[in-house]
């Protein structure tokens, strides 16, 4: 396939900027291969995160030609190599160096969400019984590899910087997985409504589009959560009933 140019965001703070690297490309190569080759040939200090190189760990998130993607799952033969391939770090998080950003905020948000609380076991031996159909619904959410590309693309975080008051699509998926877990008994709706800022999401579905695991984030996770919040907090008839019913 010959040579291609990769225009990579390098450096730190004010000194950061684009730098072009040319390297040989071959059949089946992905963007991460090119970055590794560049590290080995000309830029050994170039920083990028990666682990599995198989689309399973969600470490090598970046923006390739402006689109949030995993570098290990982006094949060069799907890109126009007649122009430089532009590789940038994620923009929703503080930049550290080259392609690496500080994603620790995500880990703090997750920790703040109420943990899994199972119902009492179904069988005397301490085990539960669940049907595959009930499990299937949640397994979609549990495919999430925490690449944070959905957080990166979400305009509430990316453009409006609402990090302190908005949990972001990843954590709505996480919460939906817990709320719809067949065994879970906790209630996180109030938390999502208030601290999670669920209402900020105006369902533009950008997160769904970039998800490398093809999780239908908006339709299957966020909208059902929004509906449940509405039922719980804003539905006048439910409210009326609740006046006579003790809360669980």
């Amino acid at each position: 396939m010959g040579k291609a140019t990769f225009r990579i965001w390098t450096g730190q703070a004010e000194q950061a900027g684009f730098k072009d690297y040319a390297t040989d490309v071959g059949e089946g190569m992905v963007v991460l291969d090119a970055v590794h080759q560049i590290q080995a040939e000309t830029a050994p200090t170039l920083a990028c995160r990666w682990n599995c190189k198989a689309g399973k760990c969600g470490s090598c998130s970046a923006e390739i030609n402006g689109k949030p993607r995993l570098m290990c799952m982006t094949r060069l033969d799907q890109l126009d190599l007649s122009m430089p391939v532009v590789i940038e770090p994620m923009k929703s998080f503080p930049h550290i160096k080259d392609l690496v950003t500080d994603v620790s905020w995500n880990f703090r948000v997750k920790k703040s969400i109420k943990k899994f609380k199972p119902r009492a076991p179904d069988a005397p031996d301490g085990t539960w019984r669940m049907q595959q159909a009930d499990v299937d619904r949640v397994q979609e959410f549990r495919k999430c590899i925490e690449c944070f590309l959905c957080q990166d693309v979400c305009h509430v975080l990316r453009d409006h910087h609402k990090h302190p008051e908005f949990a972001g699509p990843r954590h709505f998926v996480y919460t939906a997985a817990l709320e719809m877990h067949p065994l879970d008994t906790e209630d996180r709706l109030g938390q999502m409504k208030d601290e999670g800022g669920l209402g900020y999401c105006n369902i533009t579905k950008c997160c769904t589009k970039v998800c490398p695991e093809h999780i239908t984030i908006t339709d299957n996770a966020i909208i059902p959560l929004k509906e449940r919040v509405v039922d719980e907090y804003y539905d006048p008839i439910t409210r009326l009933f609740k006046m006579f019913k003790p809360r669980k």
Partner: peptide
């Protein structure tokens, strides 16, 4: 393995609902 289930893991199920 059962302990993982108590911590939230969701394994594929048998017809009678076990792991």
């Amino acid at each position: 393995v059962r302990e993982l289930e108590a911590w939230g893991a969701l394994f594929d199920r048998t017809r009678d609902g076990r792991i």
